[in-house]
Nucleic acid binder design. Structure first.
Lengths: 205, 205
DNA sequence: ATTGTTACTGAACGTTTGTTCCGTGTCAAG
DNA sequence: CTTGACACGGAACAAACGTTCAGTAACAAT
């Protein structure tokens, strides 16, 4: 069968899975000989072949001539399984249930250079599921689209709010109705500065 | 000066930092020669020496006789800066503002082996800041404390609720008042199974 | 019947890499 | 002054490692 798409074969998927698992467990990707040994290959060339295929499909990156130079694209750290529909019956982490793998790190953070995390104080954004004590992931940028959630500096205080800028005024709107919008007009003597926009939220229970 | 504690010297810290950075950037720890080259050493022995010291201090683990067999203990990836109080004035990411570094991965996931992620459907838990479409981090375990948020299997359907078990009944309580509690008693013909408890929540905006 | 892809075995080459032994110099404590 | 930890240079060895070439077999499409 001629293979055209970007999808790996079952055998190739097993190689990719092993690379991911090994990287997660040991902190480094496996060598080609470790892969061969784990999957029962007698020749390292079998691995080289699969690795080349995975690279063609864009599922794997390589650092040539370097030991352990394999990296699964997408989720950097192998991540944990995402379960879609959980089927009734037996083991939850059965292969059929697993929709993919996901590492919160790379999922929440695209550009580590310009990203920071801010701990939220106060409950003004509970309407968006942002509670006091939550961590918001913020990408630094001085401008924001109308309606997006931003971290703004208002008179020496950082605050998380919805951004609504008009021609004549800027409004910082809370999603908790108990909090009135903050309105800033030119000549108020107040300063507003967008520090960045909120791209993610997470909390530990 | 006789060195006694578990603290590394400034030079050792630099080696450790480089190992961490390299592991994050490339997906694999560096070789001893890469470390030597990066820090300006002419001899690999200088690295071996520092690595041995870091290992004694418990800051580094080694996989002997294996290429790239170094792993910084504790925080795996250096992560993004956490900002505490954002001071007025200049650069946000100034050193004074940074409270620490945090990687969502290792923050949310302690035991990768028994952890999975589930995408939430429905708004029954909005009271706890868990919205439809959010990802919940679940640690697999068959029992739960009263009041904790669990993923439970009720008649072939996985659901996220508060767990409240009495002697005579089990109640799955939503945090959105629009949803009545689900009560299961022995002899109902219904089945309840705790798949795991929710240890974290995250979402992308 | 031929072509092309997948999926390997087997062997070999050259480099990379961890490791070790020996030696030099600095600096602070006893 | 001696001792001991720290911080390196230089050189060398054996094992680990990525890579490549040659060849075999199954299978589907043309």
């Amino acid at each position: 069968m001629a293979r055209i798409g970007n999808n790996p074969t079952a055998r190739q998927q097993k190689v990719l899975d092993y690379i991911r698992r090994h990287a997660q467990r040991t902190g480094a990707p496996p060598t080609v000989r470790e892969i061969a040994s784990a999957l029962g290959f007698a020749s390292t060339n079998a691995v080289a072949c699969h690795v080349a295929a995975l690279e063609r499909h864009g599922l794997l990156e390589r650092r040539p001539h370097s030991s352990r130079g394999l990296r699964a694209t997408g989720s950097i750290s192998p991540g944990v399984p995402i379960l879609g529909r959980v089927a009734a019956g037996q083991p939850i982490t059965a292969q059929e249930n697993i929709e993919g793998y996901l590492a919160p790190d790379s999922f929440l953070i695209n550009d580590a250079e310009s990203t920071f995390v801010l701990r939220v104080q106060g409950d003004s954004m509970t309407g968006d599921g942002i509670l006091s004590g939550d961590y918001v992931v913020v990408r630094r940028q001085p401008v924001a689209e109308r309606g997006s959630i931003v971290v703004a500096m208002v008179d020496d205080e950082a605050t998380v709010k919805h951004w609504q800028a008009d021609a004549d005024a800027v409004r910082l709107v809370a999603s908790n109705p108990s909090y009135p919008p903050i309105e800033i007009r030119p000549g108020d003597g107040k300063m507003v500065d967008v520090l960045g926009i909120v791209t993610g939220v997470f909390r530990r229970l």
